[in-house]
Amino acid sequence: METLSVFVKAFLVGGAICTLGQIIINFTHLTNGKILVIFLIAGAILEGFGVYSKLIDFAGAGASVPISGFGSALVKGALKAAKEKGIYGAFTGGLAACATGISIAIVSGYLVSVLFRPRTKAK
């Protein structure tokens, strides 16, 4: 029962964040890149106030998988490193915390571009 509720929470919160994004797209016709950046910055600012971490504690992947979770992780890393190492940490902490995700995206992007071809779309 405990595990099931974790999944339900992740599904509901993750779905809600995406739905919010879709509502913004529907009413403002913003492009993909802009939507990603808006959610990223929203997550980063909320983390600055310490709010987003609480959402992650509650919803797990439901809050960490959306791009706002990425923004939150950047800020969380920067704040943690700034606390430990001062101004030097403020500059290194963010990227260090997200290095895994970015590296995997870059490397897999590279590999996929070697192994695959783009396809013409039928619809």
Binding site: L40, I41, I45, G48, V75, A78, L79, A82, G93
Partner: peptide
């Protein structure tokens, strides 16, 4: 934007 905002927030 993510890196920039993380540095700004930390500062």
């Amino acid at each position: 934007n993510g890196v920039t905002i993380s540095v700004i927030v930390a500062l």
